[in-house]
Design a protein around this nucleic acid. Structure first.
Lengths: 243, 243
DNA sequence: TAGTGGTCTAGACCACACT
DNA sequence: GTGTGGTCTAGACCACTAT
């Protein structure tokens, strides 16, 4: 019998299988690294790497002296990927186009002042844009940009590329907060989204910042009849080692 | 001057800072592991671990011989945590209660047959439940369970604990697919969710499976006026090493 | 105090993919 | 062919924390 050498991925897969199959049930301690290293015939560092990754993925908790314990599943994570709108529409196999509806520098409203952490009536750039899939309005964008955080925005006309795309190039690594909700369409949305009567809208609101500078706040609205968000979340480390 | 020893977290933080500050701009190669190891005065394995994690988080792409390259941000991941409903309501500081509205074993509808991959008219368990926050209906649950995948469900009355909670205990490690949408309320939803007239609903549909067995499909509906989902997604590895 | 995980090292060999 | 990352090892020391 040929003894195959085990990699950290093999070990990760075996350990994960023992957890999901409840050989090591929720709440139980699993053997320590030294014992597993002997069982699998590898160095302790190899076992450590395998179990580290399982711990990072949230399936076990490790504490010095106490050992490694299978944790109860307290919530389900759904990872929503929010693509650049143009790419999303192209990926659907449809023709993307963009229209700038309004661009103005105006004092912020009370609500936006709060979102951008500005004092009331500070000037900010306000944009309204429409994003089309073929000839259907797919997304209405209502955006405010903090001029202090992104002064170069004043030179941008946004007649050809949208503010989202421009901001992603300008400030590639920003933090974000999203709110998803179902809403009754506002009058602006009714006017620009070509909605059926009483059709709800799916709204994504996003605030982005870098360090402590709030950069922009945006409300993205979509026809409730046409739009949905889908995620697929599988237990990781399942079949890596099966080739 | 005291030379501090650098850990892999220090290096991860420094490298990440060089990426986010665009010292190493999008699209560029970064130095190889050997050079970085020398710069930081650590073993190559330490640099490897730091950059591995940054690659896992999706900020760089590594290829043998070609090196490590800063990748353009193509989409934004928003991680939505969908908690066990009872815990979510308790966490809001409100009183959670549960009501079973209907429990029956009936042939699946055409739509559900498709979702559960069953032949039409196979019997399945159908449940309607209401979840309350204080005295408000917070969530309406319309659930179908595949009897072949979970035979023990037939013995469950679900008069005290909800099917979600029971299934999480029974089958802790299942895969899931979610769909989020804004919809006009159906008649069942209008009847059970105490909605204002023409109020939209926020709908979460979830299908779960383990290996190739589809376990359950559920539609969770919420008042659009009261419900929203929020995520906060920050660039990782920012301040770990600053204490 | 003792047992566990957390991390580092120096060296090694390998797998891959650019040339 | 050759330079890069991918991984493993054996040993070491450290940092927690349960007891």
């Amino acid at each position: 019998m040929t003894q195959q050498l085990k990699t950290y991925k093999d070990i990760r897969q075996i350990v994960m299988a023992r957890i999901t199959s409840q050989i090591w049930p929720v709440g139980e301690l699993i053997p320590n690294e030294q014992d597993l290293a002997e069982e699998f015939g590898v160095a302790r560092a190899t076992v450590n790497r395998a179990i580290q990754e399982i711990a990072d993925a949230g399936f076990v908790e490790r504490r010095r002296k106490a050992g490694t314990r299978v944790v109860p599943r307290r919530s389900r994570d759904a990872v929503v990927q929010i693509p650049i709108i143009g790419e999303q529409i192209s990926d659907m196999g449809r023709y993307y186009s963009y229209q700038l509806v309004a661009r103005e520098i105006v004092p912020v409203t009370k609500k936006i002042a709060k979102e951008l952490s500005l004092t009331p009536r500070t000037p900010a750039m306000h944009l309204i844009c429409r994003h089309f899939a073929d000839d259907i309005v797919w997304q209405l964008e209502d955006r405010w940009i903090n001029l202090a955080a992104v002064p170069t925005v004043k030179a941008q006309k946004f007649d050809v590329i949208g503010p989202n795309e421009w901001l992603v190039r300008e400030i590639p690594y920003s933090n974000a907060e999203h709110v998803f909700r179902a809403a009754t369409a506002s009058s602006i949305e009714r006017r620009h989204l070509d909605l059926e009567s009483d059709e709800p809208v799916f709204v994504i609101e996003r605030k982005t910042w870098q360090a402590s500078n709030i950069i922009t706040w945006v409300r993205l609205s979509h026809s409730g009849n046409r739009f949905s968000m889908t995620t697929r979340d599988e237990i990781p480390y399942g079949k890596d080692a099966l080739e």
